[in-house]
């Protein structure tokens, strides 16, 4: 099983609903976030292109944050997701420094926090909060090892990219382009 997310940059309007939903669902303190929006415009008026991405931890298959962690607090969990065990985290921030995507932050309570793929919901058969809320259905979550899954089909059918492939992290978030 390999959990993954496909995020459709064509459908996404950059509304940041996924951010608010994550904040309320996961009680992310105000002023912090586990996901965020990047809106890139290129070109010169009036020849412009725009790409909008909802970003979060890529749950890298080869995660530098896991390697950097001195305590195993950052580890691979069910379905390959990368999670942080708060009780094991000492707050050394090595994982933050090691993440090319800046996906982590120090929670005011001291431990390091980031996207969990809402595993608490997934275990209960629910979509992650951001996926469930997205008004444009830009996000698809599921098991990439299952050839019948929506996400597998979508990623097989569409053109996609991952972020900073040259960092060698092998992300599990696919941006459909």
């Amino acid at each position: 099983m390999r959990y993954a997310m496909a995020i459709d940059t064509k459908r996404c309007v950059g509304c940041s609903d996924c951010v608010v939903a994550c904040q309320t669902e996961n009680k992310v303190p105000i002023g912090f976030c586990r996901d965020w929006i990047v809106e890139t415009t290129t070109g010169t008026y009036p020849q412009l292109q725009m790409e909008i991405r909802s970003e979060r931890c890529n749950h890298c298959t080869d995660a530098p944050c896991v390697r950097a962690c001195p305590t195993k607090a950052s580890h691979y969990g069910a379905g390959g997701i990368v999670t942080v065990d708060h009780e094991e985290c000492i707050g050394c921030k090595a994982c933050i420094a090691s993440c090319p995507y800046d996906a982590r932050y120090v929670h005011p309570e001291g431990y390091v926090d980031k996207c969990t793929f809402c595993i608490h919901r997934v275990e209960q058969g629910e979509h992650p909060a951001c996926v469930a809320v997205c008004p444009t259905h830009a996000m698809t979550f599921g098991d990439m090892d299952d050839r019948m899954s929506d996400i597998f089909k979508l990623v097989s059918r569409r053109k996609w990219k991952t972020l900073i492939p040259e960092a060698g992290t092998r992300p599990n978030i696919y941006y459909l382009i």
């Binding site: 209960q124 058969g125 629910e126 899954s149």
Partner: peptide, 19 residues
């Protein structure tokens, strides 16, 4: 209904005990 694992797809449900 629940998660349809066979199809690896999470079906929408709006109530979930515990959640």
């Amino acid at each position: 209904p629940f998660f349809d694992w066979k199809h690896g797809e999470i079906l929408a449900r709006d109530t979930m005990p515990g959640l």
